[in-house]
Write a protein that binds this DNA or RNA. Sequence first.
DNA 1: CCGAATCCAGGCGGATACTG
DNA 2: CAGTATCCGCCTGGATTCGG
Lengths: 124, 124
Amino acid sequence: MTRRPVVTTAEYGACPVTGVLRRVGDKWSPAVIRLLAERPHGFNELDRAIEGISRRVLTRTLRALEAEGLVSRTPASGRAGRVEYALTGVGASLREQLAALGRWAVEHAADLHMDPPAGDMMQP
Amino acid sequence: MTRRPVVTTAEYGACPVTGVLRRVGDKWSPAVIRLLAERPHGFNELDRAIEGISRRVLTRTLRALEAEGLVSRTPASGRAGRVEYALTGVGASLREQLAALGRWAVEHAADLHMDPPAGDMMQP
DNA sequence: CCGAATCCAGGCGGATACTG
DNA sequence: CAGTATCCGCCTGGATTCGG
Protein backbone atom coordinates (compact mmCIF):
# COMPACT_ATOMS: atom_id res chain seq x y z
CA MET A 1 0.00 0.00 0.00
CA THR A 2 2.30 2.71 -1.24
CA ARG A 3 -0.20 5.52 -0.94
CA ARG A 4 -0.66 6.48 -4.59
CA PRO A 5 2.35 5.47 -6.64
CA VAL A 6 0.65 6.41 -9.87
CA VAL A 7 0.19 9.91 -11.12
CA THR A 8 -3.35 10.43 -12.26
CA THR A 9 -4.61 12.77 -14.92
CA ALA A 10 -6.09 14.89 -12.20
CA GLU A 11 -2.68 15.26 -10.63
CA TYR A 12 -1.18 16.22 -13.94
CA GLY A 13 -4.04 18.65 -14.16
CA ALA A 14 -2.56 20.47 -11.22
CA CYS A 15 0.20 21.48 -13.61
CA PRO A 16 -1.33 22.17 -17.03
CA VAL A 17 2.10 22.34 -18.58
CA THR A 18 2.96 18.81 -17.61
CA GLY A 19 -0.38 17.67 -18.89
CA VAL A 20 -0.06 19.08 -22.36
CA LEU A 21 3.63 18.24 -22.62
CA ARG A 22 3.04 14.62 -21.73
CA ARG A 23 0.37 14.44 -24.39
CA VAL A 24 2.02 16.04 -27.39
CA GLY A 25 5.59 15.54 -26.23
CA ASP A 26 5.86 12.05 -27.61
CA LYS A 27 8.06 11.16 -30.52
CA TRP A 28 5.83 11.84 -33.51
CA SER A 29 2.91 14.03 -32.47
CA PRO A 30 4.66 17.29 -33.36
CA ALA A 31 5.39 16.03 -36.85
CA VAL A 32 1.80 14.91 -37.35
CA ILE A 33 0.44 18.19 -36.06
CA ARG A 34 2.73 20.15 -38.29
CA LEU A 35 1.69 18.22 -41.40
CA LEU A 36 -2.00 18.48 -40.62
CA ALA A 37 -1.55 22.19 -40.09
CA GLU A 38 -0.65 22.51 -43.77
CA ARG A 39 -3.65 20.59 -45.00
CA PRO A 40 -5.66 17.46 -44.21
CA HIS A 41 -3.90 14.19 -44.88
CA GLY A 42 -4.80 10.56 -45.44
CA PHE A 43 -3.25 7.79 -43.40
CA ASN A 44 -0.70 6.51 -45.85
CA GLU A 45 -0.04 10.05 -46.90
CA LEU A 46 1.11 10.79 -43.37
CA ASP A 47 2.97 7.52 -43.25
CA ARG A 48 4.96 8.45 -46.33
CA ALA A 49 5.52 12.05 -45.27
CA ILE A 50 6.87 11.18 -41.82
CA GLU A 51 9.97 9.25 -42.61
CA GLY A 52 10.80 6.59 -40.06
CA ILE A 53 7.43 6.13 -38.39
CA SER A 54 5.74 2.75 -38.43
CA ARG A 55 2.08 2.37 -39.27
CA ARG A 56 1.40 0.93 -35.88
CA VAL A 57 2.83 3.94 -34.08
CA LEU A 58 1.19 6.33 -36.52
CA THR A 59 -2.15 4.76 -35.72
CA ARG A 60 -1.56 5.09 -32.01
CA THR A 61 -0.43 8.67 -32.35
CA LEU A 62 -3.47 9.61 -34.40
CA ARG A 63 -5.83 7.83 -32.04
CA ALA A 64 -4.30 9.64 -29.10
CA LEU A 65 -4.49 13.04 -30.76
CA GLU A 66 -8.06 12.29 -31.73
CA ALA A 67 -8.97 11.31 -28.17
CA GLU A 68 -7.48 14.55 -26.93
CA GLY A 69 -9.61 16.50 -29.38
CA LEU A 70 -6.70 17.85 -31.37
CA VAL A 71 -7.28 15.88 -34.54
CA SER A 72 -10.46 14.91 -36.38
CA ARG A 73 -10.85 11.62 -38.22
CA THR A 74 -13.46 11.54 -40.98
CA PRO A 75 -14.02 8.63 -43.36
CA ALA A 76 -14.19 10.46 -46.68
CA SER A 77 -17.55 10.54 -48.36
CA GLY A 78 -16.08 10.16 -51.83
CA ARG A 79 -13.98 7.07 -52.25
CA ALA A 80 -14.51 4.14 -49.97
CA GLY A 81 -11.71 3.20 -47.58
CA ARG A 82 -10.46 6.74 -47.61
CA VAL A 83 -9.99 8.53 -44.30
CA GLU A 84 -9.08 12.12 -43.77
CA TYR A 85 -7.23 13.46 -40.76
CA ALA A 86 -7.30 17.15 -40.00
CA LEU A 87 -6.59 19.50 -37.15
CA THR A 88 -9.52 20.59 -35.06
CA GLY A 89 -9.87 24.17 -33.91
CA VAL A 90 -8.01 23.44 -30.70
CA GLY A 91 -5.45 21.49 -32.65
CA ALA A 92 -4.72 24.44 -34.89
CA SER A 93 -4.59 26.65 -31.84
CA LEU A 94 -2.09 24.34 -30.18
CA ARG A 95 -0.03 24.26 -33.32
CA GLU A 96 0.47 28.00 -32.99
CA GLN A 97 1.78 27.50 -29.48
CA LEU A 98 4.13 24.77 -30.61
CA ALA A 99 5.34 26.94 -33.45
CA ALA A 100 6.12 29.65 -30.92
CA LEU A 101 8.05 27.10 -28.89
CA GLY A 102 9.87 26.10 -32.04
CA ARG A 103 10.86 29.67 -32.76
CA TRP A 104 12.13 29.97 -29.24
CA ALA A 105 14.15 26.77 -29.63
CA VAL A 106 15.77 28.03 -32.81
CA GLU A 107 16.62 31.35 -31.20
CA HIS A 108 18.25 29.77 -28.19
CA ALA A 109 19.72 26.76 -29.95
CA ALA A 110 23.23 27.88 -29.08
CA ASP A 111 22.54 28.07 -25.35
CA LEU A 112 20.67 24.81 -25.38
CA HIS A 113 23.39 22.40 -26.41
CA MET A 114 21.12 21.34 -29.22
CA ASP A 115 22.43 21.03 -32.72
CA PRO A 116 21.40 23.99 -34.81
CA PRO A 117 18.79 22.52 -37.13
CA ALA A 118 19.87 22.29 -40.72
CA GLY A 119 16.39 22.98 -42.02
CA ASP A 120 13.57 24.67 -40.22
CA MET A 121 10.33 22.75 -40.29
CA MET A 122 8.10 24.91 -38.18
CA GLN A 123 8.54 28.15 -40.09
CA PRO A 124 6.39 28.14 -43.20
CA MET B 1 22.12 -3.56 -39.92
CA THR B 2 18.87 -1.68 -39.73
CA ARG B 3 20.20 1.48 -41.24
CA ARG B 4 19.81 3.82 -38.30
CA PRO B 5 17.12 2.57 -35.97
CA VAL B 6 17.85 5.32 -33.49
CA VAL B 7 16.76 8.88 -33.90
CA THR B 8 19.71 11.13 -33.40
CA THR B 9 19.72 14.59 -31.92
CA ALA B 10 20.43 15.94 -35.37
CA GLU B 11 17.27 14.35 -36.69
CA TYR B 12 15.25 15.79 -33.86
CA GLY B 13 16.98 19.05 -34.70
CA ALA B 14 15.10 19.05 -37.98
CA CYS B 15 12.03 19.74 -35.89
CA PRO B 16 12.99 22.04 -33.02
CA VAL B 17 9.62 21.48 -31.41
CA THR B 18 10.18 17.78 -31.04
CA GLY B 19 13.62 18.45 -29.67
CA VAL B 20 12.59 20.73 -26.87
CA LEU B 21 9.45 18.75 -26.10
CA ARG B 22 11.37 15.53 -25.75
CA ARG B 23 13.74 17.23 -23.37
CA VAL B 24 11.44 19.06 -20.98
CA GLY B 25 8.38 16.94 -21.63
CA ASP B 26 9.32 14.26 -19.19
CA LYS B 27 7.39 13.64 -16.03
CA TRP B 28 8.98 16.05 -13.60
CA SER B 29 10.97 18.69 -15.48
CA PRO B 30 8.10 21.17 -15.65
CA ALA B 31 7.63 20.98 -11.90
CA VAL B 32 11.33 21.49 -11.26
CA ILE B 33 11.51 24.40 -13.69
CA ARG B 34 8.51 26.03 -12.11
CA LEU B 35 9.96 25.77 -8.61
CA LEU B 36 13.34 27.07 -9.67
CA ALA B 37 11.62 29.96 -11.41
CA GLU B 38 10.42 31.13 -8.00
CA ARG B 39 13.81 30.94 -6.35
CA PRO B 40 16.88 28.69 -6.15
CA HIS B 41 16.37 25.45 -4.29
CA GLY B 42 18.47 22.82 -2.59
CA PHE B 43 18.17 19.16 -3.47
CA ASN B 44 16.05 17.97 -0.59
CA GLU B 45 14.11 21.16 -0.77
CA LEU B 46 13.04 20.20 -4.27
CA ASP B 47 12.49 16.63 -3.14
CA ARG B 48 10.09 17.77 -0.46
CA ALA B 49 8.34 20.32 -2.65
CA ILE B 50 7.63 17.92 -5.50
CA GLU B 51 5.41 15.37 -3.92
CA GLY B 52 5.81 11.91 -5.35
CA ILE B 53 9.22 12.19 -6.97
CA SER B 54 12.03 9.87 -5.92
CA ARG B 55 15.50 11.15 -5.20
CA ARG B 56 16.88 9.04 -7.97
CA VAL B 57 14.61 10.54 -10.57
CA LEU B 58 15.09 14.02 -9.18
CA THR B 59 18.82 13.59 -9.58
CA ARG B 60 18.44 12.42 -13.14
CA THR B 61 16.05 15.22 -13.98
CA LEU B 62 18.38 17.85 -12.56
CA ARG B 63 21.40 16.39 -14.33
CA ALA B 64 19.52 16.39 -17.60
CA LEU B 65 18.35 19.97 -17.20
CA GLU B 66 21.86 20.93 -16.26
CA ALA B 67 23.31 19.22 -19.33
CA GLU B 68 20.83 21.08 -21.51
CA GLY B 69 21.94 24.35 -19.99
CA LEU B 70 18.60 25.12 -18.39
CA VAL B 71 19.64 24.71 -14.78
CA SER B 72 22.80 25.64 -12.91
CA ARG B 73 24.22 23.55 -10.10
CA THR B 74 26.48 25.34 -7.62
CA PRO B 75 27.84 23.76 -4.43
CA ALA B 76 27.07 26.50 -1.92
CA SER B 77 30.05 28.31 -0.45
CA GLY B 78 28.49 28.52 3.00
CA ARG B 79 27.61 25.18 4.45
CA ALA B 80 29.35 22.06 3.25
CA GLY B 81 27.29 19.50 1.42
CA ARG B 82 24.88 22.19 0.37
CA VAL B 83 24.06 22.55 -3.30
CA GLU B 84 21.98 25.18 -4.95
CA TYR B 85 20.01 24.67 -8.11
CA ALA B 86 18.78 27.64 -10.08
CA LEU B 87 17.49 28.47 -13.53
CA THR B 88 19.97 29.79 -16.05
CA GLY B 89 19.07 32.61 -18.38
CA VAL B 90 17.82 30.23 -21.02
CA GLY B 91 16.03 28.25 -18.37
CA ALA B 92 14.12 31.31 -17.22
CA SER B 93 13.41 32.14 -20.83
CA LEU B 94 12.06 28.67 -21.46
CA ARG B 95 9.95 28.90 -18.36
CA GLU B 96 8.16 31.86 -19.90
CA GLN B 97 7.35 29.77 -22.94
CA LEU B 98 6.08 26.94 -20.80
CA ALA B 99 3.99 29.34 -18.78
CA ALA B 100 2.44 30.55 -22.02
CA LEU B 101 1.70 26.96 -22.95
CA GLY B 102 0.16 26.50 -19.52
CA ARG B 103 -2.08 29.50 -20.00
CA TRP B 104 -3.16 28.08 -23.33
CA ALA B 105 -3.89 24.72 -21.73
CA VAL B 106 -6.05 26.31 -19.05
CA GLU B 107 -7.94 28.34 -21.64
CA HIS B 108 -8.70 25.34 -23.82
CA ALA B 109 -9.07 22.82 -21.04
CA ALA B 110 -12.69 22.20 -21.98
CA ASP B 111 -11.87 21.34 -25.59
CA LEU B 112 -8.95 19.20 -24.60
CA HIS B 113 -10.64 16.45 -22.63
CA MET B 114 -8.35 17.31 -19.78
CA ASP B 115 -9.67 17.67 -16.29
CA PRO B 116 -10.03 21.33 -15.42
CA PRO B 117 -7.21 21.85 -12.93
CA ALA B 118 -8.42 22.51 -9.41
CA GLY B 119 -5.51 24.79 -8.67
CA ASP B 120 -3.34 26.66 -11.12
CA MET B 121 0.35 26.19 -10.57
CA MET B 122 1.77 28.20 -13.40
CA GLN B 123 0.10 31.51 -12.61
CA PRO B 124 1.82 33.19 -9.69
C1' DC C 1 22.37 17.36 3.32
C1' DC C 2 23.21 15.22 -1.37
C1' DG C 3 23.49 11.86 -3.65
C1' DA C 4 24.99 6.70 -5.89
C1' DA C 5 23.85 1.58 -6.43
C1' DT C 6 20.83 -1.91 -7.33
C1' DC C 7 16.79 -3.93 -8.85
C1' DC C 8 12.47 -3.97 -11.08
C1' DA C 9 7.89 -3.00 -13.73
C1' DG C 10 5.47 -0.74 -17.29
C1' DG C 11 5.08 1.71 -21.36
C1' DC C 12 6.73 3.56 -25.72
C1' DG C 13 8.45 2.78 -29.95
C1' DG C 14 9.82 -0.47 -33.59
C1' DA C 15 10.03 -4.79 -36.99
C1' DT C 16 7.33 -7.76 -39.41
C1' DA C 17 3.45 -9.90 -41.29
C1' DC C 18 -1.44 -10.10 -42.19
C1' DT C 19 -6.38 -8.17 -43.30
C1' DG C 20 -10.94 -5.59 -44.94
C1' DC D 1 -6.16 2.65 -48.89
C1' DA D 2 -6.27 2.06 -43.83
C1' DG D 3 -5.44 -0.23 -40.64
C1' DT D 4 -4.55 -5.03 -36.96
C1' DA D 5 -1.85 -8.66 -34.83
C1' DT D 6 2.41 -10.29 -32.61
C1' DC D 7 6.54 -9.98 -30.67
C1' DC D 8 10.28 -7.61 -28.63
C1' DG D 9 14.08 -4.24 -26.92
C1' DC D 10 14.87 -0.19 -24.51
C1' DC D 11 14.23 3.49 -21.70
C1' DT D 12 11.74 5.97 -18.11
C1' DG D 13 10.39 6.07 -13.68
C1' DG D 14 9.95 3.99 -9.02
C1' DA D 15 11.34 1.30 -4.43
C1' DT D 16 14.84 0.44 -1.58
C1' DT D 17 19.26 0.50 0.27
C1' DC D 18 23.87 2.35 1.12
C1' DG D 19 27.65 6.14 1.37
C1' DG D 20 30.22 10.80 1.69
